[in-house]
């Protein structure tokens, strides 16, 4: 275990939260995109994306043997999944993507929910930076031993 274990762990969390923020940006930007993906010649609206976070564990024989004193190696984004909740139907006959009854399928993105997610990601990022600074100041204090 290196002296930078804590800093490395925090670094992985910062990267993960950054990616989460990117995904939220994409959701927000596409909140009104009626053309997300082309499926069988038909445009399908944008589907809300979200990240799946996973604890980063090294899976070696030695690591399993030492599981009891394993402090962990941080976090990673294991995959980005699409939200499969049904699309909202909005009456808008002038829209190019309206069906024969005049309804348009809108993305299943809820801006309110995205804002809450955004807050969560941003606060989580700040919290991890606080951990990193604490970790650094601890190391710097260690260097003051014997002064």
């Amino acid at each position: 275990m290196s002296i930078f274990q804590g800093i490395n762990t925090t670094g992985s969390a910062l990267t993960a939260q950054r990616l989460r923020m990117d995904v939220i940006s994409s959701n927000m930007a596409n909140a009104d995109s009626t053309r997300g993906k082309l499926v069988d010649g038909e445009w399908e609206p944008y589907k809300r994306k979200s990240v799946v976070l996973q604890a980063q564990e090294e899976s070696t024989f030695a690591s399993h043997l030492n599981a009891a004193k394993n402090v962990g190696n941080g976090v990673k984004v294991s995959k980005i999944v699409e939200d499969e909740t049904p699309f909202e139907l909005v009456y808008d006959p002038d829209n190019a993507d309206a069906n024969e009854d005049g309804y348009v399928q809108m993305p299943n993105v809820d801006p309110l929910r995205e804002m809450v997610d955004l807050m969560s990601a941003s606060r989580s990022y700040e919290a991890n930076i606080t951990v990193l600074n604490a970790s650094k100041s601890m190391l710097m204090k260690t260097l003051e031993i014997g002064k």
Binding site: F4, I7, T15, R18, K136, L143
Partner: peptide, 22 residues
């Protein structure tokens, strides 16, 4: 490159440098 990774690398460099100076 990830900005956070750049900052972390510079902090690590800073700490190891301080240790060397000590």
């Amino acid at each position: 490159v990830d900005l956070s990774q750049v900052m972390i690398a510079s902090q690590k460099a800073n700490i190891t440098m301080q240790a060397t100076i000590e």
